[in-house]
């Protein structure tokens, strides 16, 4: 419908914790040509309810459709769009970086600056755990890149609304 500016939206979706729900949501995105940048899902405070955090990109019309279509799924309880609201966002990344004797010190220094942790040490590599928002994680990855990143595992964004003041 002609609104072209694309934006990143973080949706928090409460769904019934039942088999098939993930595939209903994922199928909705693929079937209707919506984008998923990341999706993570786990139980919420209520064991019968899971929280999905979905990061998507689209113009206003598309994001409105995404929310409406999600709401239409029978197992979806609630959809919240964090964009434009006050919320905290975090992502966890595990990064296996090459750590030869000559650059071990450099890696540890950066781990220190970014307040991450080394969670596994090998002869050839360190595995670093870091949490942060998108910007922090990509800044860290950019700095590590010259040393050689062997593998990465990321959760995708998680988000919760901040308490109203």
């Amino acid at each position: 419908m002609g609104q072209t500016k694309e934006e990143r939206h973080i949706l928090s979706v409460l769904v019934e914790n039942q088999p098939g729900v993930l595939s209903r949501v994922a199928g909705l995105f693929s079937g209707r040509g919506f984008n998923i940048e990341s999706l993570c899902v786990a139980e919420s405070t209520d064991p019968l309810v899971s929280r999905m955090t979905i990061v998507t990109i689209g113009d206003l019309g598309m994001v409105e459709q995404i929310k409406k279509q999600l709401n239409k799924l029978v197992n979806v309880i609630k959809v919240v769009d964090f964009t434009g609201t006050d919320f905290v966002q975090r992502e966890l990344a595990l990064i296996k970086v090459r750590a030869r004797p000559e650059n071990r010190a450099e890696v540890l220094r950066m781990v220190d600056i970014f307040r991450c942790q080394v969670v596994d040490v090998g002869a050839e590599s360190y595995t670093v755990e870091m949490t942060g928002d998108e910007g922090k994680i990509s800044a860290f990855l950019n700095l590590l890149k010259p040393m050689g990143i062997k593998e990465i595992a990321r959760t995708g964004a998680l988000a919760l609304a901040r308490e109203k003041k």
């Binding site: 419908m1 409105e64 709401n71």
Partner: peptide, 10 residues
């Protein structure tokens, strides 16, 4: 169905 509204025309 709210998803029918504003799907194709303003």
């Amino acid at each position: 169905d709210p998803s029918s509204i504003r799907k194709n025309v303003p």
